[in-house]
Simulated assay, not measured.
Amino acid sequence: MSKFLGTGVALVTPFREDLSVDVEALVDIVNHSINGGVEYLVVLGTTAESATLSKEEKELVKQTIINANAGRVPLVVGVGGNNTAEVVNELKSSDFSAFDAILSVSPYYNKPTQEGIYQHFKAIAEVSPLPIILYNVPGRTGSNVLPKTIIRLANDFKNIIGVKEAAGDIVQAMKLIKDKPKDFLIISGDDMITLPMVLAGGAGVISVIGQGLPKEFSSMVRYALRGNLDDANHIHFQLMDIMEYIFEEGNPAGIKAVFENLGLSTALTRLPLVPATDALKEKINGFPLLVTNKIKG
């Protein structure tokens, strides 16, 4: 699936001062990302604060991004949960005609066994109208999808085309790259270890910082995919501080502070998340590449 090679970005949901969805800001962020060179967009992932959006707001976010994208890059939509029957029903009943793939997170809170995780994704694969990218993020779900389970799913279901691997464990990522089927995509879900994962044979990244600094981050990934280590390393080292800053107080508080700095949206989040502190904003605002990339304000 060459359309998912390179940099995808997990889009935020920007809010107005009254915490309603800021449609105009979302359009600006979509254009900022695409014009900066990202290869695809991820809609309603965890970075979008989808857990705090109503059903109507989710539809508004989807339609806003679909319209703003206007067919320019592929779209991936997040469809996941810890109630397998509910996820299956959503896949059966929703219109996915504007999307190219599903990103489905491993069940959270329940802490299923590896067999339970396999059966969950088996049920999803059997009904999904689109290719599926698994999402392993144990820091949020409370359970790790082991490489053997991911490889088993990859071998058993041809419509499971890849995994967003966000365990933050380079050894685990290397095991996946070593044992994966030929065309299965190992996609970094951790900005900081994207470069070593790609150089080892990974397919790219679904990034957070990539929507704030799309030109720089997507260029780094493209250099890595081509084996241009010197240029990839140069950008990686330039971005290391900001990659740390944006996760210092949780996601998406950090990346929203970046967008506030760029003049694209407010830094507001919905409870139980809170916006970045003034101390973190000060560090972000002083980051050299943001000073030179400032859009407005």
Score class of each variant (00 low, 15 high):
residue 66 I to V: 15
residue 201 G to N: 03
residue 36 G to N: 10
residue 216 E to R: 13
residue 38 V to P: 10
residue 67 N to R: 15
residue 97 S to M: 04
residue 232 A to I: 09
residue 230 D to E: 15
residue 142 G to P: 12
residue 87 V to E: 06
residue 215 K to Y: 13
residue 208 V to I: 14
residue 50 S to I: 10
residue 92 K to G: 11
residue 294 K to P: 11
residue 293 N to T: 15
residue 20 S to M: 00
residue 173 A to M: 13
residue 147 P to G: 08
residue 137 V to F: 08
residue 22 D to Y: 03
residue 168 G to V: 02
residue 123 A to T: 04
residue 64 T to R: 02
residue 246 I to Q: 08
residue 185 L to E: 04
residue 146 L to Q: 14
residue 158 K to W: 00
residue 187 I to M: 08
residue 41 L to S: 09
residue 245 Y to T: 07
residue 74 P to C: 10
residue 182 K to N: 11
residue 209 I to P: 13
residue 286 G to C: 03
residue 5 L to Q: 11
residue 182 K to D: 14
residue 223 Y to M: 06
residue 106 S to M: 11
residue 264 L to S: 14
residue 117 I to S: 05
residue 244 E to L: 11
residue 109 Y to P: 10
residue 62 K to E: 14
residue 59 E to Y: 00
residue 247 F to H: 09
residue 289 L to Q: 12
residue 132 I to N: 05
residue 58 K to A: 01
residue 147 P to D: 10
residue 70 A to S: 15
residue 37 G to F: 03
residue 174 M to P: 00
residue 154 A to H: 04
residue 28 D to K: 15
residue 34 I to A: 06
residue 221 V to G: 10
residue 54 S to C: 04
residue 286 G to T: 04
residue 207 S to E: 09
residue 267 A to G: 15
residue 219 S to D: 14
residue 100 D to A: 03
residue 36 G to V: 11
residue 137 V to L: 04
residue 168 G to H: 05
residue 170 I to Q: 12
residue 69 N to W: 04
residue 193 I to F: 01
residue 144 N to D: 15
residue 161 I to F: 02
residue 9 V to G: 05
residue 57 E to T: 04
residue 149 T to M: 07
residue 69 N to F: 07
residue 196 P to N: 09
residue 4 F to C: 06
residue 231 D to A: 14
residue 72 R to A: 09
residue 160 I to Y: 06
residue 208 V to Q: 09
residue 239 L to I: 04
residue 63 Q to L: 02
residue 27 V to Q: 13
residue 205 V to K: 00
residue 130 L to H: 08
residue 54 S to T: 15
residue 97 S to W: 02
residue 80 G to K: 06
residue 98 A to L: 01
residue 120 H to Y: 11
residue 261 N to E: 13
residue 50 S to D: 07
residue 242 I to S: 05
residue 287 F to M: 09
residue 200 A to L: 10
residue 94 S to F: 06
residue 212 G to Y: 13
residue 75 L to M: 10
residue 158 K to T: 14
residue 49 E to Y: 09
residue 113 T to Y: 04
residue 287 F to V: 12
residue 56 E to M: 01
residue 153 L to K: 10
residue 131 P to Y: 06
residue 1 M to Q: 10
residue 220 M to S: 09
residue 211 Q to A: 14
residue 74 P to M: 07
residue 61 V to I: 10
residue 239 L to K: 08
residue 87 V to A: 07
residue 22 D to I: 01
residue 149 T to F: 04
residue 117 I to Y: 01
residue 218 S to Q: 08
residue 206 I to T: 09
residue 244 E to F: 12
residue 19 L to V: 01
residue 108 Y to L: 02
residue 295 I to T: 15
residue 116 G to R: 05
residue 35 N to H: 03
residue 102 I to W: 05
residue 49 E to S: 12
residue 119 Q to R: 15
